[in-house]
């Protein structure tokens, strides 16, 4: 009898211990964000673009991974993100975010507050790669630029830096590295630059930031 009670107690506890139930979400209930681009309009509104992978089934089997880019504007980055979320049936999940890109307009104005917001978001790993998009192309257009070499632009950026190209004229800068460097006495930081000619993606040179604002590239 005592044994039965023990087992009953054990299973009751097991049920009660499922505290993560409220947070558990199936993978198809999440929209994995792999890349994010942030810029500013002439009116001063934030333009936020996110890139999400979409698995397309083809003829009885899973086909190649494709992606969608969703763009919205808002008075704050949060507002723009919530506007994007209103367009998706699932919840935006930033846990697998690979890269964050900033348009040159925003970079010249200052990226300090935006980075602070991103760094304080716990689900977002502080090792995401940072990139500045030259004015030759808008940040949202850059993010949707497909390369013939790698399907997803966000993954292209990650692969580029992970390959550690010795001849490249730029180097990877992660979120925590930039934040650390720009918090030092000199308040200076570097972020790699990129642009696209609508056919290919180019990552070269570094942007110099002083007090969170783009000084030179």
């Amino acid at each position: 009898m005592m044994k039965l009670w023990k087992w009953l107690f054990f299973f009751t506890l097991l049920t009660a211990a499922a505290g993560c139930q409220l947070d558990s979400r199936e993978i198809d209930h999440r929209t994995m964000v792999l890349g994010m681009a942030i810029d500013k309009t002439e009116e001063g509104e934030f333009i936020v673009t996110v890139q999400v992978p979409v698995i397309v089934p083809t003829e009885g089997q899973l086909g190649p991974s494709e992606f969608e880019t969703l763009t919205q504007t808002g008075a704050t980055v949060w507002e723009a993100i919530s506007n994007i979320e209103a367009m998706t049936p699932t919840v935006l999940f930033f846990g697998h975010l690979k890269t964050v890109m900033f348009g040159e307009t925003l970079a010249r104005e200052g990226i300090g507050q935006v980075l602070d917001m991103l760094d304080r978001r716990a689900p977002l790993a502080n090792q995401v790669l940072l990139l500045i998009i030259r004015n030759r192309i808008e940040a949202d257009k850059f993010l949707s630029q497909e390369s013939p070499l790698v399907n997803l632009p966000a993954l292209y950026i990650e692969r580029f830096f992970k390959a550690d190209q010795k001849l490249s004229r730029s180097t990877d800068v992660k979120l925590f590295q930039y934040r650390r460097d720009s918090n030092l006495k000199g308040n200076a930081g570097l972020i790699p630059l990129a642009y696209s000619d609508r056919e290919n993606i180019f990552i070269e040179d570094m942007a110099v930031f002083i007090k969170e604002s783009l000084l030179a590239n």
């Binding site: 505290g19 409220l22 716990a122 689900p123």
Partner: peptide, 9 residues
Amino acid sequence: QTYLMQATE
């Protein structure tokens, strides 16, 4: 709550 279960009370 910050790092693992944001939606749980």
